[in-house]
Amino acid sequence: MTTPSYSTRTAVDIAVGILIAFRGCSENDAFTELAETSRQHKVALARTARALIAFIQTHHDDLPATDVTAAALQWSHATPYRGAFGTAA
């Protein structure tokens, strides 16, 4: 699957929406979580957002919602974008 090339703003907005949907949190809390994850992994915010989008697109049909939530929040190293998190691709 080819990942669309979202602008930074669009990617962040989509990723925030994903977190809101799965976590049931506010927009502010979702953005804070995305930004904290980005800082923790020393990855640009846009790359972190795009990785979360790709993870959800790839795994959304294969996992129960609770598993997707847990995996998305940790952005599993099993994603096609694992290189975005500083690990070997």
Rank of each mutant, 00 (worst) to 15 (best):
E36V: 12
L52A: 09
H41M: 03
L19D: 08
R47H: 03
A35F: 11
H41Y: 08
A30Y: 12
H77N: 10
S38T: 12
H41E: 03
V68R: 14
S38Q: 10
R9Q: 15
A84V: 00
S26H: 09
T10P: 04
F31L: 15
K42I: 14
E36M: 07
L19Q: 11
Q40W: 05
P64G: 07
A15W: 06
A46G: 08
L73K: 03
Q40P: 00
A71C: 07
I56S: 02
A15E: 04
T3K: 02
A70Q: 15
A71T: 01
H60L: 08
T48W: 05
I20W: 00
Q40C: 10
T66L: 13
F55N: 06
G24N: 08
V16D: 07
G24M: 11
D13R: 11
L45W: 10
A15D: 02
V12S: 05
R9M: 14
T79S: 14
T79K: 00
T58R: 11
V16P: 01
S38V: 13
G17Y: 03
T48F: 03
I20K: 09
G24E: 12
H77Y: 12
A35V: 03
R23F: 05
R50T: 05
T79N: 10
R82K: 12
S5A: 10
S7M: 06
I14L: 09
A49L: 05
P80V: 02
F55A: 09
K42H: 12
A11T: 08
A51D: 14
V16M: 15
L73F: 14
P64S: 05
T10S: 08
A71F: 11
Q40V: 09
H77P: 06
R23S: 10
R47S: 15
I18E: 01
T32V: 12
R47A: 15
P64V: 04
I20A: 07
G24T: 00
R82G: 03
V16E: 15
T10N: 07
S76L: 14
T37H: 15
P64I: 05
F31Y: 11
D67C: 07
L63K: 07
D13S: 15
